[in-house]
Amino acid sequence: MMISALIRHAPSVVIGVIMHVLGPKNLFWVIALVGWTVGGSYLVMWLTGTTLQRAQGWNWFLQPSDLAVNEDYSSGSYGPPLPFGVLVSLARGDVYWEAAKATIPTVLALAFLYVIRCSLHSAALKKNIRNVTRKRSETPSPPLSSKKRAAPKEPPTPPKPFLTLGYILEHGYGYSQLIAAIAGGIAVAPSVAASLTLFKLGAESKAPQFGSCVLVLLFYLTNFQFVQYIPKPAFSCLMVLAGLDMIKTWVVGSFLKTQAKMEWMVAPLLVVLAFTVGMLTAIFLGVAISTFIFVATFYRVGTVKFVGSGLTLRSTVERGFLESR
């Protein structure tokens, strides 16, 4: 079982690692590697004489039955995942409340932690505007006609003053989540760092962004049937990439950045706690442990010390006459 599992997962790990190395240089590589994974899979199948049906049978691809909709379900009345189907199913009383109640601890953890995630993500998004604007201004322009060359060069548009962190969090993340919740979908997050290549293609204008939504609509309307022709590693490598990125940034990066290694030790401890007592409890325990460590460190600094008698807390710092008055 283990050998079989490792063999199945190995391609995703290899592709994920390559993406992790090349991705920061240019996002184009991530997209290209997904494409090469698909192409490479078909090449291997062609070389080994493996049919698509056999590869699907070996679970290297999603099977048509994975994507098929149960006939009882498809022939029934309006409901999820159709737009606002969740409201219809709620009104019709289709929700099995006992099952819903059992998920409350997980859902509360999701809501609380997702706000933190959105707060950090919106800060990263805001920070990235400057980088993107600079990158765009550095992009070499294509050769222009003499008429166009005469036109004055427009400076990169700076972000408008009202684009604060609060504005991004409320108008971007907040409203989009409310819409997704009512419509019955899953929340989305914007791309923080689109590459220079995408800008060269004119990806920053609104049309291609709405166009990508139209493409998703096509897949939505066709029940994602096209996906059975895409090998599983093309999906799972993205999960490996996301995992690697996070581990590198938040374990290795933070270890190098943190001077007090005792404080850093809370991070791996919190990981262990997250897998044993749950994520939300682990966060609260982590905050408590960090606070204790901070207080201990603060007292060791030596600049200010206090003597507590139970009734009073006095500083031991010797002060001058005027200060002590």
Partner: peptide, 19 residues
């Protein structure tokens, strides 16, 4: 998987344009 993919897509189709 198919139904869940559509659920995720519905999020992009409704929440994405808000962004």
């Amino acid at each position: 998987t198919g139904l869940l993919a559509r659920t995720a897509a519905l999020g992009i189709l409704t929440a994405g344009p808000v962004f």
